[in-house]
Every structure is written in C-alpha cells, then in structure tokens.
Computed example of a mutant assay.
Amino acid sequence: MSVTRGIGIAAVALSTVLLAACAGTSVPGQATPSATVVASDAPTPSAAPQAAGIVISTAAITVVDEAGATMSSYDYFEPTSDVVAGLTEVFGSAPKDTPFAGGGDQPPAIWHEWGGFRLVDDDYAGQAPLYPNHWVALTAASADGLQLSTLDGIALGATTSEVAANHSDVLNPWTDSDGTAHTDLWIDYRPDPTEGATVDNPVMGVWISGPTDGAVTRIVAPSRNWGP
C-alpha cells in the first residue's frame, strides 16, 4: 500500500467516527434536559354536603347537613309517592313497607319505614291545612346514621319532664292501666286557635309523649289533638 493511499483511508475512517459521535446520544457526564412541568391553578373541588339528620315540624320533613342547612324538604300534602322517592335517595335504600289494619283511632295505612323513621300513608284523603296525605312517627333517635329530631332538637330519649317544663302551654297528663303516669304535649302548633292554644282547643302540631318520670318514647308530626 502506498503512503498516499493509507493517508486517504485513515481520513475517511476519522470522518466516519466524527459523524457518528455527532449523531449519537449525549456525552457522558452531561445532564439530559427534562420536560417542564406546568403547575395547575385549578382549585380542588370541595366535597358535596352530606345529609346528617332529618328534622320534623308541623309544616314539613326537612333533610339537613352537618351545619343544619336545609338540603331538601317535603310537606305533608304533596303526593306520598314523591316523598317516598325523595327519602329513599336520602337514606340510600327503599323503605320496609308494612300494611297496618287500623286501630287505636288510626285508619288503615301503609307504613314506609327506614329504621326509626316511619312515614304513614293512611286511607284518609288529604285536605289542607288540617288533614295531611301522610304523617311521620319517630320511633328512635336515629335511622341509618341520620339524627331524627324536632325543630328545637327534641329526640327520643329526651327526659319527658324537662321537655314538658319548656313547653307547659299545651300539656295532657294521663295515667295508663298499670298506673304509670304519662305526659303528652304539643309543640310548634298551628293554626293558633283564637281562644288560645290549649289542650281543650283544636291544635295541629308536633306531638311528644312519654312516661312522666321517664324518657320520650314517641314523636309524631303533624298531629291533631282531636279526632282520629
């Protein structure tokens, strides 16, 4: 091989190496640029309010959140099927439906029950303002994790005598067959009779009952203090 030819071959080889180096990956020891992360200014969505309790009054059944704010409300004169559908969503399950044959001044009815919350759909046709399509009986202080109470926070288990002392205007003491003294009282009564609200005059309100020396065992709304 001639010297001139050898120099030419070496030059071609060196040129090939240099081109490969330029086209290759980064030089060892040199940092590789990373992708730029852009921070998002979008606010984190807050959790939706959750139902915490059901408050019953003479006017309505009200679902409230933990702060006591109204989430939904149902009156006693709208179609019972609509109320059942709404409460089914609130409780997260359909009620247990039990036929009631009637008795004790109560007409035949269907009891829609979610634990300690009973919605009673009786055979009477509703007629505002004194004859509702349905009414509520509380049989426990809570149902499926929801607290059950009146507007002023009275729940089953409250001391009857203390409740009576704070609502002494409409009282009806009575004694059952075994000699146990009971107290019935009405709160949130409406409409106000012109003669004044007493147990001897018509009152529509929330009925609370229990042994006089014990705890409240029954809360009903709306309740009349006359007739069936």
Rank of each mutant, 00 (worst) to 15 (best):
A165H: 04
P129C: 08
V199H: 07
D184N: 14
V220G: 02
A85W: 12
A164P: 08
V203W: 10
L171C: 00
V136R: 08
D75P: 00
P211C: 11
Q147M: 12
F77W: 10
S15V: 11
A13D: 05
S81Q: 15
F117K: 02
T58K: 02
L171W: 04
R224K: 01
A165L: 01
V38H: 08
P228I: 10
P202F: 14
D121I: 04
G68K: 12
T217H: 09
V37P: 06
D192K: 07
Q127G: 13
D82F: 01
W226M: 07
A39M: 07
S34W: 02
G68V: 12
T139G: 11
I56V: 03
Y124P: 00
S34R: 00
W174A: 11
A31S: 01
G103I: 07
L119A: 07
G68D: 13
G179Q: 08
Q127N: 15
T25N: 15
I110K: 13
L148M: 01
I61S: 11
P202V: 13
T44V: 14
Q30M: 04
T160Q: 04
H167R: 09
M71R: 09
W226Q: 05
A165F: 03
G116M: 11
I219D: 02
A165R: 01
G86I: 14
G145C: 03
P49I: 05
D169Y: 13
W186F: 09
A125L: 03
D200H: 07
T32I: 01
P95L: 05
P95E: 13
Q30V: 07
I208M: 02
T150P: 09
A221E: 06
V163K: 01
L130G: 01
D65F: 11
P193V: 09
Q50K: 15
G227H: 06
A221Q: 01
S81K: 15
T194M: 12
A158Q: 00
A52L: 02
D192L: 09
S161Q: 09
V163W: 10
Y76F: 15
G116Y: 08
A67R: 14
D152Y: 00
W226S: 03
A13Y: 09
D122F: 02
T88G: 14
S73K: 10
V199G: 09
R190M: 06
P43S: 12
G205A: 13
F117L: 10
P211T: 11
A67G: 12
T58E: 05
L185W: 02
